[in-house]
Design a protein around this nucleic acid. Structure first.
Lengths: 343, 343
DNA sequence: ATGAAAGCGCTAACAT
DNA sequence: ATGTTAGCGCTTTCAT
């Protein structure tokens, strides 16, 4: 019953067939008679045998392992509930498709320099998912050069790079448009770091909403944070001097910081200032007041990244897959709510 | 320059030596003359060759891969900033020791049933780190049976199981003792789920502190949460009826929920009720009021789990390693502060 | 439909 | 100190 040290050879002997036949049964190859298949399957079941994945990989030139690479600059995200959910989506999809997930985090440039080549070399990994960070990523060129299947989470300029992305621009535009419809006139924004494409896109969405309505852009009402709670807090404090009547904050975590600053300054939300966040993390609903926010399908994006990667692994790098997922505006109290309805 | 499709054979030919010699250089085997070593190294550097990890694994019977298994019931933890940090610690240590990390999350019992045997079979993984969840874990017996090196994060009853753990009992005792010293008399606690050993231990620590001072135990002042913010909120609401003057909450996330309930009830912290959390997550410092809490070395625990595992892989399963890490009481405002000093 | 045999790329005795 | 050789456990032609 202990299938540990068994090999395909023993199974073959026990079932009275050749090793090739056992292999065929294992791989659900059609050219096996029903009778033989049944015999072999029985032995496999009885012994609890399972083929050695390493040997299988060497022979088939496929490891069954997908890598998830999270470059250095994303680190701050790792303090955010965003990341666990993303990984959950990826993991779940890997399990469903019988892939093993390997996680590569980088804590220094030395680690990046050392590990990037290993990841890019198509030896251990069948494919890679890369969490987008700075545009001038060092990993992507190596991935491209090695021809290994990979997808980015977050958009990428390079026309040959496939990605799965949430529609940050549109999500932001809808959030700000909602504020405009509710009558806000001086709408500020707290952005993420501009080396993050989603931060850039959310800011872009903010600008588009204002342009569309012919609102003036006031640079003083645009302040950069870095996606941490503290940066949201500080940005809000600075914003106060310019008397905004609404703020679109590029992440819920920063919005929580902004809320804290407003609470300290005894400014009422949404009466004095309306607030909208981005992400719809669990904390958004329980914030005081509950946070209106742009929900993005985080887990789903992770799962879709895996599915897209598998598609590429099976069907080739071309054409470039560029998947953009919709967001949803979740209206709660902090925007001065009252259901105008989903925008 | 493209080292991708190169094998040890080509390198041997280019360097004018045998494959074994190349292998020896690769593995830093001493029996190679300085001259030969230099020649071979040169070729390796010039070609950018790196050995195929799969082939190496098959031959050496070592994969260089460590698995991190996170059973089903821990899922709620994944909503917590706890987990990312733990994984960071693990990843960093894996990188430092040249191990690849594979992540196994389970989203259903079917997945567990399917994947546990694969994890336990010592084929793909050289060792496993298991995040403790329920005591009656299904994975551990399989791990024990297969003789694969593994460590738990969190204590385990089985005398043969190695683990790395934070001293939850002592951390809780110190927190509650601090409240007692500050003059609190009706000290309540919001616990985690009792199928979590750390929740059990933190409750135990609470009880010990009261016993030590001869304080009575009032069952009404002990309410179970489940480590979510919402459960802290609800537990606090129920606690209000019994007029506690202090609450020891078994996690910062739940403490944030408790704070929310108190804010809604217009009860002042720490004036009317003192509060102490556990974890020292980033949100604790920025809570309103800043949360006194028991800091646990999460990243360090992850790193230590890896180091302990590697120790076991090299030196054998015996003796059982049982590592207990100290906590630190971080005094802020919510406990009615004023530095009495670190307790 | 099944078996025989040749690898996959490396490591590790064993021999010299 | 270096080379020769036999695997590691599986997949996959190529025969039959």
């Amino acid at each position: 019953m202990r299938g540990d040290k068994l090999t395909i050879k023993e199974i073959a002997a026990l079932a009275g067939v050749s090793r090739s036949t056992v292999s065929r049964v294992l791989n659900e190859h059609p050219d096996v008679s029903a009778k033989t298949r049944q015999q072999v399957s029985q032995v496999i079941a009885e012994t609890g045998f399972s083929p050695n994945p390493i040997a299988r990989s060497l022979s088939s030139q496929k490891s069954g392992i997908i890598g998830l690479a999270i470059p250095l600059t994303i680190r701050s995200l790792f303090e955010d509930p965003f990341f666990p959910r993303f990984i959950q989506g990826i993991s779940q999809s890997c399990n469903a498709h019988d892939y093993t997930l390997s996680l590569f985090l980088f804590h220094s440039q030395e680690e990046e320099a050392k590990l990037y080549p290993r990841i890019a070399r198509r030896q251990l990994l069948d494919g890679v998912i890369v969490a987008a960070s700075q545009s001038e990523n060092l990993l992507v060129p190596q991935l491209v050069a090695s021809q290994i299947p990979f997808v980015m989470h977050g958009r990428h300029e390079d026309p040959g790079v496939s990605f799965v992305q949430v529609d940050n621009v549109n999500g932001a535009t809808r959030a700000v448009t909602h504020l405009i419809r509710r009558g806000c006139r001086r709408i500020a924004t707290i952005t993420g770091r501009m080396d993050s494409l989603s931060a850039v896109d959310r800011k872009q969405g903010y600008l588009i909403a204002l342009w569309d309505r012919g609102y003036p852009i006031d640079e003083k009402l645009i302040i950069a944070g870095d996606f941490t709670e503290m940066s949201g807090y500080e940005a809000m404090q600075r914003l106060l001097a310019h008397k905004p009547d609404a703020v679109f904050v590029a992440s819920d975590t920063m919005a929580l910081g902004a809320l804290r600053a407003l609470r300290e300054a005894k400014i009422s939300v949404p009466k004095d200032i309306a607030l909208v966040g981005f992400d719809d993390l669990p904390h958004a609903a329980t914030a005081d007041p509950p946070l209106t926010t742009v929900r993005q399908p985080i887990r789903r994006a992770g799962a879709l990244a895996v599915e897209t990667l598998i598609d590429i692994m099976y069907n080739g790098l071309e054409p470039t897959r560029r998947i953009i997922m919709p967001t949803e505006l979740v209206i709660r109290v902090s925007c001065g709510a009252g259901q105008i309805g989903q925008v």
